[in-house]
Simulated scan of single mutants.
Amino acid sequence: MRRRARVDVRAVWAACSVLLDYPTAGLVDSLDDVEALVAGERHLAGLVTHLRTRALPELQAEYVATFDHTRKCALYLTYFAYGDTRRRGQALVRFKEAYREAGVAWDESTGELPDHLCAVLQFGATVDVDRARRLLTDHRAGVEMLRLALTSWRNDDGSTGSPWAGALDAVCATLPELRGDEADAVRRLVEQGPPAEEVGLDGYGPALIAPATLSVRS
């Protein structure tokens, strides 16, 4: 069996939590620090270059088109398992409970959902790597679905592959390889997409991307 190279998981997750967030001037200004944090991480080099060389309005429009307007590119982990169904609410509670058990509380004032991939990566990088890894592996099929969707993304110039695909490659390289049942779940997601339900879902639809925040309990 192929052995995966050893990586600094916290550093990779910290970098990806920044690079997968909505592009802002502050994010672009932080790219030197991000690059230094994961020097030599081949998966992220292309995305860092893309963010550094494109105009900010172009990056923002590209990000919204990719993550806000495409179901298979959602950054919300529970969406892949539960879609827009009532069961998603309980799944979101489990994320909040994991944060609380690690001694931090989810900041509701951000208007963001606790299963946002950037939030989970930030949590793992700065608070509790083991609990964050469990959240990611519990939703391993969804993470892989997102990676595949970004890898096969068709760009306006006819080329294939979203600039953000490298960040998902980097995240997946820190996780266990897919097991048989997870691979089956990915195949179903590719064929059918996330589950759908039309009623009773107020408050659980995709939210506008905003920086994820974890506030430490006093």
Results as ranks from 00 to 15, higher is better:
Q90P: 09
Y63T: 00
R187I: 11
D68T: 00
R94Y: 02
L92S: 01
G180Q: 15
G205F: 07
R42F: 04
S30H: 12
V34Y: 02
F95P: 01
A55W: 03
P176A: 08
S159Y: 02
E97Y: 12
T85H: 09
N155T: 14
P163C: 04
E108V: 15
R42S: 14
R42I: 07
C172G: 07
E197C: 10
R42G: 07
V190G: 06
L201K: 08
G158T: 04
S215E: 13
A45T: 14
S17L: 09
E58F: 02
R4W: 05
V38F: 02
V129W: 08
I209P: 06
V129P: 06
D29F: 03
L19D: 07
P23W: 00
A74M: 11
E182A: 10
L77M: 13
V104C: 02
D156I: 11
R52G: 12
V34H: 05
V18Y: 02
C172T: 15
Y63W: 10
H139F: 09
R3L: 01
E58R: 03
G200W: 05
H139G: 06
P211M: 07
G26R: 11
A210N: 12
T137F: 08
A125G: 10
R4Q: 12
P23Y: 02
S159I: 01
R188P: 05
R71T: 05
R4M: 13
R217H: 12
E191V: 13
V18T: 06
G40F: 10
H50S: 10
G193I: 11
G158R: 00
R54A: 01
R2T: 02
V64G: 00
L44P: 13
G83T: 11
R87D: 13
R54T: 03
A91T: 02
A167M: 03
D169L: 01
A207K: 11
A15W: 10
G89I: 10
H43G: 05
P176E: 03
S152T: 15
V93M: 12
G180L: 12
A65W: 09
